[in-house]
Each structure stands twice: as structure tokens, then as C-alpha cells.
């Protein structure tokens, strides 16, 4: 058995999002089981099914390293600048 990941997209502008995972013996049965397991109640009108073996998996330590304080921007600084700008105009 292989493990597969399922992504579903609804009509409109919604992006594909992860719906879950499941096991199947081959890709033909994978599509069939994906439809019954995750799509039988109209949960999406498009579906991607990906064999987990084909996923590129990022290193978790590298991922932690990438998270630094100066990468965060909650918009406060910009908001303050705008407020002070408005103050001058009036």
C-alpha cells in the first residue's frame, strides 16, 4: 500500500487545500478511493491526489532557522507612520 495526500478545491477563488490522506495499492485505485473517501458529498469540484513518496519534504531544523524576528511584520510601524501623517494634514 502507498499513502496518498488529497487536495480539494471548491468552485470560485478558493485555493486547493489539504483534505486528508489515505492508503491505496496503486494510482488507479487511489483516484477511486480518494473520490469515495473525500469527495462523495460534493466537498470539492477539483481534486489533486499526490503519492506521498513524491512530496519534497523540508528539513524541520532549517524551517525553524528561517523564522527570525525581523521577518515578521504585523503592520504596526506602518500604521503608526500613517497615523502621524494624517495628523499633519489636518
Amino acid at each position: 500500500m502507498n499513502t496518498y495526500e488529497v487536495f480539494l478545491k471548491k468552485a470560485g477563488k478558493e485555493p486547493f487545500s489539504h483534505a486528508g490522506s489515505f492508503d491505496a495499492p496503486d494510482s488507479e485505485l487511489a483516484l477511486l478511493y480518494a473520490r469515495e473517501t473525500y469527495g462523495r458529498r460534493g466537498e470539492g469540484d477539483q481534486m489533486w491526489v499526490v503519492d506521498r513518496a513524491n512530496l519534497l519534504i523540508a528539513d524541520q531544523d532549517d524551517l525553524a532557522m528561517a523564522d527570525r524576528v525581523h521577518k515578521h511584520n504585523d503592520g504596526q510601524l506602518l500604521a503608526e507612520l500613517r497615523r502621524s501623517g494624517r495628523g499633519k494634514a489636518t
Binding site: M1, F22, D23, A24, L32, Y33, E36, T37, R40
Partner: peptide
Amino acid sequence: PFLEEDLAFTS
């Protein structure tokens, strides 16, 4: 026989 087949068959 396994969960996925269970769902497909009973559907």
C-alpha cells in the same frame, strides 16, 4: 478489508 475499500464498497 481496509478502511478505504470499506467506504467505497458501502457507498
